[in-house]
Design a protein around this nucleic acid. Structure first.
Lengths: 219, 219
DNA sequence: TGATCAGTTATACTCCATGTATAACGGCTT
DNA sequence: AAGCCGTTATACATGGAGTATAACTGATCA
């Protein structure tokens, strides 16, 4: 009995350093090698550890990838979230959010691509990812709430959250960017699509283009 | 020398029947088992053949899946394509195309899901799929051409084809539908998003929507 | 200082899947 | 009757995930 937690001190620090080295190695492997070659063995070797240590620390490949996801979320583009969210203009906040997502997807494109395919074969990991995506969904929900009544969306309210969530998902950015561009390059496009769905006019160059029909109709 | 092709007759027919049985078995495995359990061994056993025969006929797992894709394209919802395309109203044709895609995705959802994940790990298969998707892209291009000048799309012309192509891809339908609905259920939604992108007004019930303001004062 | 504990390592498995090689088999074909 | 060709049986190689176990090692604590 009397479990000695070793919760402080040198010991704990070296263990944590080991975890970090493993996560870092996994990240690098995914960023650099991109293609296959991502096995727990390769990760462990690159981290200067044994495969067994990876299992000790993360339990499984899925476990490692879950923590890896949390890591990139913490230290990536999302740091700017508070700034963007506290803008008074709701639409500006939403578009800023799109820009943040674009950067996040760009920074971690190989990682996210791999996670997407792993999720396709590992139900546990798929579920874990789904839960993590709930945070994005909530953020979108909050922003849409602020927009309510300001605009007349093209999509029915019941579907709006779902639709925007899909529109802002990694898949959309990744597919739009294709092999030649980055998700960040595609941010203006997504913003346009978003405005289309939300029924918001483009504030900038309100493209004079023929001026359609007399807007002063007042009805 | 003198290669005797055996190109006609009973022999060829039994071989073809074998191929068909294998393809059919693969299809069933993907539709039914959905989850893992899709190995060449399982396919061969279900077809009453040996794994070696699968390799003889298709060369690899990727080869089998490629032919499987061609099969579902041939005998699925795309049969209605000519009817839809020959409509005089270009927008109606495009929306009909969306409906066809919805049915195709619904009928083959498990298959396409699996193919998507295989493409994530097998570069050859990924390339093969990419080429096959060119056909959809061409079809969309043709339809957009007919729409040109009739509408003022929200998206720049240079990006329009790409954008619509992404919007009509399997990923979009699949994500919009989620676990509770089918891609077909989601067709009206995609059509709405499409109209939003194309800058087309909804022809149908120009949504009186609660009549928000000014309900004729009847009160 | 010395015992102890926890995490790491070495080693050896199991299981499963893809893919390759080879020789025997058997039936349609000429 | 002879031959061709796809199928089958069998064996093997490769590689990854995951489990089990005992030895090791260094920080911790009494």
């Amino acid at each position: 009995m009397t479990p000695r937690p070793y919760t402080h001190g040198e010991r704990q620090r070296t263990v944590d350093a080991g975890r970090d080295r493993i996560l870092q190695a996994a990240l690098e492997l995914l960023q650099i090698d991109n293609i296959a070659a991502f096995s727990l063995d390769a990760v462990a070797r690159r981290a200067g550890m044994t495969r067994m240590t990876v299992y000790n620390q993360f339990g499984s490949k899925a476990g490692l990838l879950e923590e890896l996801f949390d890591l990139i979320v913490e230290r990536g583009a999302f740091r700017d979230m508070p700034t963007v969210f506290t803008q008074s203009d709701a639409m500006a906040a939403l578009e800023g959010f799109v820009a943040i997502l674009g950067r996040f997807y760009t920074e971690n494109r190989p990682v996210l691509t791999r996670m997407r395919t792993v999720a396709g074969t590992d139900p546990d990991f798929d579920e874990a990812m789904r839960q993590r995506h709930e945070r994005r969904r909530h953020a979108i929900g909050a922003l849409l709430e602020r927009l309510r009544k300001q605009h007349k969306p093209v999509i029915a309210a019941a579907e709006l959250l779902n639709t925007v969530d899909v529109l802002l998902g990694f898949n959309t950015f990744d597919a739009l960017a294709g092999p030649a561009r980055t998700p960040s390059d595609v941010v203006p496009l997504v913003q346009q699509m978003l405005r289309g769905v939300l029924g918001v006019e483009d504030k900038r160059k309100r493209s004079p283009r023929k001026t359609g029909r007399k807007p002063r109709r007042t009805r």
